[in-house]
């Protein structure tokens, strides 16, 4: 068995295990950490496919930013998960039906003729040593998908505006600094010179 097959199977098994843990463990923090494990293994498998850029982005964005944020939320909000799990038995039949439907759909998709057939994806030839993944992705983003790339940026901008518009509140009694006033302040406004009579030293 070649080494990359061993690597593939090991990481796939870890990934599946992590994914199962996400939904089975009771503690939400452990669930979030299992999700990190899942992302990590997925990124290793991407590495195996020679898509280094996407693999690193997956770790940076999902593990580094999204999951850490998620952990923060889980820890800070102190969500009680037990009520969320109520009615498990009651919703089980519906859940099983949906799961079976999804599984059936996936099977139909995999067996249908076309691009999802295993035969339509031959093993790609290894890229030359100096091949740069990042450059290829960048070239596509800024040429073929230019419009999509720009619009995605606008969507993020709107998300920021919306978040600020919905949460920014100026409380009436709040203490805020006004840099402009602070800079323009005159000496007279802050320093008061007081004339005092000299007092005799005490105790002498």
């Amino acid at each position: 068995m070649p080494i990359y097959e061993i690597v593939f199977y090991v990481f796939s098994l870890v990934m599946l295990g992590g994914a199962v843990m996400v939904i089975t463990v009771r503690n939400p923090v452990y669930a979030a950490l299992s999700l990190v494990l899942t992302f990590f293994s997925a990124s290793a498998i991407w590495m195996l496919l020679e898509v280094e850029f996407l693999a690193i982005i997956l770790i940076l964005v999902y593990v580094g930013a999204v999951m850490v944020l998620f952990l923060f939320v889980v820890m800070m909000l102190d969500i009680n998960v037990d009520p969320l799990k109520e009615g498990f038995i009651r919703y089980l039949p519906a859940g099983i039906v949906v799961a079976l439907l999804m599984a059936g759909e996936l099977l139909v998709v995999m067996w249908s003729k076309g691009r999802f057939e295993a035969g339509s994806y031959p093993i790609p030839a290894a890229s030359p040593v100096e091949y740069s993944n990042t450059k290829a992705v960048g070239e596509l983003l800024f040429t073929e998908y230019l419009l999509a790339f720009e619009v995605a940026g606008i969507v993020l901008l709107v998300a920021i505006i919306a978040a600020v518009a919905l949460t920014l509140r100026q409380r009436p009694g709040g203490h805020r600094q006004n840099p402009s006033l602070q800079v323009r302040v005159q000496r007279d406004e802050r320093v008061r010179l007081v004339k005092m009579k000299p007092e005799p030293r005490q105790g002498s």
Binding site: Y145, A148, V155, L166, R169
Partner: peptide, 24 residues
């Protein structure tokens, strides 16, 4: 293209969600 459709749609939806909650 499918990407433009999806992104355009998200742009409308995101703005609309915020507008619905406009009266905080």
């Amino acid at each position: 293209s499918l990407v433009t459709i999806y992104l355009g749609l998200e742009l409308i939806s995101l703005s609309s969600y915020a507008l619905v909650a406009y009266d905080r």
